[in-house]
Design a protein around this nucleic acid. Sequence first.
DNA 1: CATCTATATTCAAAAACCTGAATATAGTTT
DNA 2: AAACTATATTCAGGTTTTTGAATATAGATG
Lengths: 113, 113
Amino acid sequence: MDFETVASKLKVMGHPIRLQILDMLRRGETCVCHIERALDRRQAYVSQQLMALRDAGLVDSRKDGLQVYYTLIDEDVASLLEVLIGPMPSMGLEKIDGCTCPACSTILLTEIP
Amino acid sequence: MDFETVASKLKVMGHPIRLQILDMLRRGETCVCHIERALDRRQAYVSQQLMALRDAGLVDSRKDGLQVYYTLIDEDVASLLEVLIGPMPSMGLEKIDGCTCPACSTILLTEIP
DNA sequence: CATCTATATTCAAAAACCTGAATATAGTTT
DNA sequence: AAACTATATTCAGGTTTTTGAATATAGATG
C-alpha cells in the first residue's frame, strides 16, 4: 500500500463527523436513522458523509426494507480508532429515543405498558 | 481526546508527502536536506510541509549549526504508521548521495580515497 | 563584514473540500 | 396506485488546501 493510498484513507477519516460515524460503527452494523439521531445531523448530511466513507472503501451498506445498514469493512480502521480513541465502546447498539429503527423500537415497545 | 482533535491530526497525516516525511522520521532524527533529497522536492516545499507537521504538534525541530533536525514527538504517529504501512524500516538513516548533511558526508569522505 | 548555505516565511492562484438546499429514488403501506 | 418513509444524489456557494514563486533569516565561512 503506497503513501498515496494510505494518505487518502487518512484524509477521509480526518473529519470529525465521519470519524464519529466510524466510531459508532465499531459497535456493529448500524442503520442510517440511528446515526442521524446520535449525531443530531440532518439526514442528507449524514448520507453525504456515508457516501464519502463508502467511496473510500471504509464501509459497506446493506439494504433491509426501508433501512440501510452500514458496516466497517476496512480492517485498519478499527485498529486506528483503538489507538486514537481507545477501546471500542460496549458492544451492541445504544438505544436512542426518537429513533424508529427496528433495533430501537424493540425497547420502545417494551417500555410502553 | 475528542473527535475534533483526533480528526485534525488525521487530516494533517492525510497527505502523501507529509505521510512520507513522518515515515522517514520513524528511523530517527533527520535533517531537512536529507528529506529534501529523499523525496526529491524543492526545499521550500518540504519546509512548508514540515511547518504543517510542526503546527499540528506531530514533530519537533532542533537547530544544530546550519542544519535543522526533525523528530517525531506524537506518540500515536508511530503506532498508526505501524498499522498502515508496516513495521519501521531498518533503524538509522539511509545515506543519500548529493546530500551534504553531516550524516551523509561521513561516508562520502570515507568513500573518496 | 560580505557572502554563502540551509532553512523558513509570505503571497497568490488554482484546486479541492464542506455543507445547505432542493430533489430523486426505492421500498412500504393503505 | 397514491401517499409515505428512509435514504441517496445533485448543485452551488463559500471556505480551506495545495503548491509554486519569490523572498527572508540565521548561522557559517572566508
